[in-house]
Lab assay of single mutants.
Amino acid sequence: RTVKALYDYKAKRSDELSFCRGALIHNVSKEPGGWWKGDYGTRIQQYFPSNYVEDI
């Protein structure tokens, strides 16, 4: 599953992803609480806010 970032996001913790608008995040798994995990660049299975992305 791949999603596309709608907005920039700067990680606030070491287990979160930072990305820019338009970024493609791969291998996404839905987690409870509005935070999902995914791969972006060299960061593997890190958290990001689900309301910052859309399915593609």
Rank of each mutant, 00 (worst) to 15 (best):
R1E: 12
R1V: 15
T2G: 04
T2Q: 12
T2M: 09
T2H: 04
T2S: 12
V3I: 03
V3A: 05
K4L: 10
K4A: 08
A5Q: 02
A5N: 00
A5I: 01
A5W: 00
A5Y: 01
A5G: 01
A5S: 05
A5R: 01
A5C: 08
A5T: 09
L6I: 15
L6K: 14
L6C: 06
Y7D: 08
Y7I: 10
Y7K: 15
Y7V: 09
Y7R: 15
Y7Q: 15
Y7G: 06
Y7P: 03
D8T: 15
D8A: 15
D8G: 12
D8Y: 04
Y9E: 01
Y9W: 09
Y9H: 10
Y9T: 01
K10F: 07
K10A: 07
K10Y: 11
K10P: 05
K10H: 14
A11T: 05
A11S: 06
K12C: 03
K12H: 15
K12A: 10
K12L: 10
R13M: 13
R13V: 05
R13F: 13
S14F: 14
S14G: 13
S14Y: 07
S14R: 14
S14C: 11
S14L: 10
S14Q: 14
D15P: 01
D15G: 13
D15L: 06
D15C: 10
D15M: 15
D15A: 10
E16C: 14
L17V: 06
L17R: 00
L17A: 01
L17F: 05
L17S: 04
S18G: 03
S18L: 00
S18W: 01
F19E: 03
F19D: 03
F19C: 04
F19P: 05
F19A: 03
F19I: 06
F19Q: 03
C20Y: 08
C20T: 13
R21M: 07
R21C: 11
R21K: 08
G22N: 06
G22C: 02
G22R: 02
G22T: 01
G22A: 04
G22E: 06
A23L: 02
A23N: 11
A23F: 07
A23W: 02
A23Y: 12
L24H: 07
L24D: 02
L24G: 02
I25Q: 01
I25V: 05
I25R: 00
H26F: 14
H26C: 12
H26P: 00
H26K: 09
N27A: 04
V28G: 03
V28T: 05
V28I: 06
V28R: 02
V28Q: 03
V28D: 02
S29P: 07
K30V: 13
K30I: 15
K30P: 15
K30E: 13
K30F: 09
K30T: 08
K30W: 07
E31M: 13
E31R: 10
E31T: 15
E31V: 11
E31S: 13
P32N: 15
P32R: 10
P32C: 08
P32W: 06
P32Y: 08
G33H: 08
G33N: 11
G33R: 05
G33M: 05
G33P: 03
G33L: 06
G34R: 12
G34D: 12
G34T: 14
G34E: 12
G34Y: 10
G34Q: 12
W35H: 12
W35K: 04
W35T: 08
W35A: 06
W35R: 15
W36E: 02
W36D: 04
W36Y: 06
K37R: 12
K37G: 01
K37F: 06
K37C: 07
G38T: 02
G38P: 01
D39V: 01
D39R: 00
D39E: 02
D39T: 06
Y40C: 12
Y40Q: 07
Y40V: 09
Y40I: 15
G41A: 08
G41V: 01
T42Y: 06
T42E: 15
T42G: 15
R43N: 15
R43K: 13
R43T: 08
R43C: 11
I44E: 11
I44T: 15
I44K: 13
I44V: 14
I44D: 04
I44F: 09
Q45G: 08
Q45P: 03
Q45C: 07
Q45E: 02
Q45A: 07
Q45R: 01
Q45D: 03
Q45H: 05
Q45T: 04
Q46K: 12
Q46F: 08
Y47M: 06
Y47P: 01
Y47I: 04
Y47Q: 10
F48S: 01
F48T: 00
F48R: 00
F48G: 02
F48K: 02
F48A: 00
F48N: 05
S50M: 15
S50G: 12
S50I: 08
N51M: 09
N51E: 15
N51R: 12
Y52Q: 08
Y52D: 00
V53C: 07
V53F: 02
V53A: 05
V53R: 02
V53M: 03
E54I: 06
E54G: 08
E54H: 08
E54L: 05
D55M: 15
D55P: 13
D55K: 10
D55E: 15
D55C: 11
D55F: 09
D55L: 05
